[in-house]
Amino acid sequence: MTDADFEELTLKALGSSTPRVWSFLVTMFGDLALAPEARLSGATVNALTAAIGIKPEATRVALHRLRKEGWIESHRSGRQTRYGLTSHGRSETKAAWPRVYGTSSSDHPVYFVLENPSEPVDQARFPQSAATVQIGPRSFVTTARATDEHQLHVPLDSNGPLPDWISEKLCPPELQSASQDLSRRFEYVLRRSDFGALSLLQLVALRVVVVHEWRRLILRSSAFPEYIMPHGWKGPDCRDAFATLLDHLPVPNLSTLDQDLETG
């Protein structure tokens, strides 16, 4: 695929917003170099970011930021600098992995919780591991099981849709619109891409773009099962398209990618 055609494809895949470079690199390292010994050379990082229009200076600043924040570390290899995730970066990436790469949404039971308004507020009322959204004064939707006898804890099931005033708290209209937009963009990439015509660099760059855009969307949403989400939420459509795209865009062998860039 020509550079001009690939630029048009990536612009469509990215939509109207240019990714923050440091966030794009977090996706890149988490997707391509999660293994403890995996490293990306500086040349490879620059080639992948340049392929989607990010300038070398911006990449350099973002790498410096991620090193300073303890997300990645650098290693000298001859005259080259290679980068890999720190244990902290790897741990954070693995924590998000099920939501980004999982084939289905959460299957945790969900509850509507109403607290006793006469009781003092407990700021740590729900564990951090639970998906929780406040619906109104002292009322919540959460995946946390009942631990307080003073709470009204009502299970929510899939027998019928929730009222809009609840579902739009769980997934605000702007997030629904973002999911609809991403669904359209993924379908465009699937429809318009001749994956066999892409170079290895283009395949990998497009993969990182696809993972990044899905990661941005799914991590903005709360980890609730789909049956309580509003009809405007297109997360399931995005997840299906994401899985299909990754079938066409497999994780590369990093040594092969390095060699391809050196000879290209």
Rank of each mutant, 00 (worst) to 15 (best):
L217Y: 02
L190M: 11
A62S: 11
K169N: 11
D240T: 15
T103M: 09
Q202F: 03
A243F: 06
E262Q: 11
D164E: 15
R20T: 12
R191M: 07
K234V: 06
S106P: 04
I135L: 12
L190N: 05
S17T: 14
H248Y: 11
H88A: 14
V154R: 09
Q202Y: 03
P137F: 10
L198I: 03
W71T: 12
E187Q: 15
E187L: 09
S255K: 13
V209M: 03
F112R: 11
S221D: 13
Y111N: 00
S222K: 09
P250R: 03
V121N: 08
E213T: 11
N116H: 09
S41C: 09
V189W: 00
I228E: 07
T263V: 10
W97A: 14
T93P: 05
V110M: 06
E7L: 11
R145D: 14
D122P: 01
L40K: 01
A178S: 12
A197R: 10
E69M: 13
I228Q: 06
P173I: 10
D107A: 10
L40A: 01
D247W: 09
S158E: 14
A197Y: 01
A124G: 10
V61E: 09
V251W: 04
A243T: 07
A4C: 08
D107G: 06
L63R: 08
V251F: 04
L170W: 00
A146S: 14
D5M: 05
R192P: 02
L254Y: 00
L219A: 06
A4N: 10
Q80L: 09
Q123V: 15
R82Q: 11
P163I: 02
Y111H: 07
P161I: 08
E92L: 14
T244D: 13
T147D: 10
A58F: 09
Q180N: 06
Q180L: 05
H150N: 15
S129C: 09
I218N: 01
Q176F: 03
Q259P: 00
S77H: 12
T44W: 01
D258Y: 04
A197G: 06
K234C: 12
V113R: 02
L114A: 13
Q202T: 04
Q176L: 03
H212K: 00
W214K: 08
L63V: 09
I52D: 02
H231A: 14
E57F: 13
S158M: 10
A43K: 11
F186N: 02
T59D: 04
A243H: 14
L40S: 00
E57Y: 09
A35D: 13
R125Y: 10
F24I: 01
C238D: 00
L206F: 03
E149R: 12
E7N: 09
V141A: 04
Q123R: 14
T103F: 08
R215P: 04
R191Y: 05
R20W: 05
V45A: 12
I135T: 13
R99D: 12
N159Q: 14
G42S: 08
W165I: 11
L9D: 00
V45L: 05
S199N: 03
N46T: 07
L201F: 05
L162W: 06
P117E: 08
D5R: 10
H153R: 05
S177N: 07
A50G: 07
A58M: 08
R191K: 15
D194S: 12
E7R: 12
S183W: 04
K169E: 10
S17L: 13
L198T: 00
L246N: 04
P225F: 07
E149K: 06
K94M: 08
D3Q: 12
